[in-house]
Design a protein around this nucleic acid. Structure first.
Lengths: 204, 204, 204, 204
DNA sequence: TATGAATGAGTATTCATTCAT
DNA sequence: GATGAATGAATACTCATTCAT
């Protein structure tokens, strides 16, 4: 996951990620990171200026990895729906396969520990913006209702997050069939046709 | 928000909630809680056995409050859609009006700091289970697609969470019109009619 | 020496003074102060906000003590020379009897560890200013040459300091007879009569 | 100032002196010395066995330099007073022109960091002993009172130190006229004639 | 010679918790 | 009940020194 880093950095980042998921940030002391990563405390500080920097680097690294993972094949000449479904499948796969990274981002994306500049930097390499562009296309083509594309992506991502969370916590399994339905429901929830029907149906 | 507690407990819980949202858990020391709440450390330990207990009590108290807030008028004899829409409006109102509680639950629902027993206890008084019952009704009546009701509630809640998060972080505003559309999209995303249409449309 | 402080503060200040003289500031760790003073580290921080504050409080306390010690009976109606000689005797006695305080002030009066505000505060309670007033009187009465009184006090104090330093380091003993001569030489060095004679004699 | 050393040693010593004066010993880490001097830590340890050795070498080097500076033309056949005045002028010039060295010696001459052997070695190359020999001559010739020559040198040096300190701290300026008076007062303070007069005058 | 990555004991300070009053 | 002084283990971080290259 941290291929762009040297051996020491990689060991530190991987260990830190694992420990934070296992035990929480406050219980993840530098000396524990040192012991578990096999890098001495002094040397950790040779590569990272502070604990905060490790956490922020972790954040950046994961978001970048996730971004590349999800946006593969996003801008092909296939139909929008095909690409839409594939992207959300990748998101689901990502959250399940790299669940530590997923949980980390979930828990710390709103933490003061992650600086504003890290968040901004991360936004540029994440998948939310590219996916929002796909949604925008869909809106332009009259496929989707006229809602802020970013908002729609967030909503769908929220659904996915809570689905995975429910699964990770053992509330319910997320099988292939359910996943297919879920992704279809994403499309349905903002699709133009349905929206019209709906508006009529809701009668408000 | 903590009406069931005595004065001291109330002061401690309210102060702790405010501080945790302002500064994070690790920066919220017992002595700070003591100073800000006007209750001496010794006396805090008279009412709570540990810091962990305060946090867990906070969790329980907020979830209970939220549960009562959202499930008001949930089981009337109005049409399902009416009650569905009102419930989600209450959720939105809750998250926006009592945003500290919302953020706290968001941040700590997956934290090891909150014990399993607290989470289970909380589940019983929260609004997810009752709302899932409403969804179940809708499935039984053929209004909703055949998906685990809990799963659907989680998905919709996830959307709402990320919507509010986006708003709280200033990414986009959530105005009345958008909120109406969003709640309609919740209905649409799992409504039977649309699902059929969709299945046909998607062509997979 | 630290009578104005409570028991804990007194223990900490006395221990710190002793250790700093024995081992230097950098070798005087908080945990050592804690161990030697019998006050736990946590409790030291209950009374002092930081190590720097301890050192600064030490400085203030010693200077105040010294000031009171030396300026006893400085402004009586005795002849200036009597008071002059007594004051310098007190300085000598002080440096010898309370040599730890003397050495501490010597070593740290120019250290960045002692803040400007401490130095200013200390100046007001020290003995240099009162003694300079005595010198001023002597200048006004034509007893002393026309040199900045502060400068003269500093010069004489410097002599005294180096005398005591030499003694403390074992270079030479400072006996009663020598001390008398030294104090006389202080008077002589700035006395008007001699200065005139000298100017003539030096012939430059 | 460190002409007897090779390039690397010179860079290290000069950098260390500057840093210690700027920031104090405890804030002058080896890595800072390495960075500022352009010599890697490893290489510093090739030339100096420890940090302590650097400090001690600094001490020796400065004292040697000072010694040579002050004792120039000390043992000519000019009158004692001429040589006396010139020596003290050199001391004043030294303290003002090479103030970093002056301050270093001042601060560390009584520090446990400087070993006894360094101090003894330094004594042999410093200016105190030669100047004391001049004082001894003066005593022998009946010019000076019968006081330990070393003691007298220390006293006068102390005066000079505190004069310069007062100036460096901005308490008062030390102009040419004042300096002349001061050096005359040194002579006066221990001159035989004056001493007699004084003894009579003091009447104790 | 020269480099700078690596070490790990040591630093000041914090903080949940206890307990005498 | 209520106080806040006292405890001391734990924390993030530093730094003199070593050593493989």
């Amino acid at each position: 996951m941290f291929n762009n880093y040297n051996k020491v950095e990689q060991a530190v980042l991987e260990t830190t990620l694992r420990l934070i998921i296992e035990k929480e940030l406050q219980a993840t002391s530098m000396s524990l990171i040192a012991k578990e990563s096999g890098v001495s405390t002094g040397n950790i500080y040779h590569y990272f200026s502070s604990k905060e920097e490790i956490i922020n680097e972790l954040y950046r690294g994961i978001v970048k990895f996730n971004g590349e993972f999800v946006t593969r094949e996003l801008f092909t000449d296939e139909p929008i729906q095909t690409r839409f479904e594939r992207a959300w499948r990748y998101v689901a796969e990502l959250c399940q396969t790299y669940s530590e990274g997923f949980r980390f981002i979930e828990q710390y994306s709103f933490s003061p520990y992650i600086t504003e500049s890290t968040k901004q930097e991360a936004y540029k390499v994440g998948w939310c913006a590219p996916l929002a562009r796909l949604y925008e296309e869909a809106v332009e083509q009259g496929l989707f209702i006229e809602l802020d594309p970013e908002m729609m992506v967030q909503m769908h991502y929220g659904s996915m997050v809570y689905l995975i969370k429910g699964q990770l916590q053992g509330y319910f399994p997320v099988e292939e069939r359910a996943l297919r339905q879920v992704i279809q429901s994403f499309w349905a929830s903002v699709s133009q046709t349905q929206a019209d029907t709906k508006k009529a149906g809701s009668g408000t």
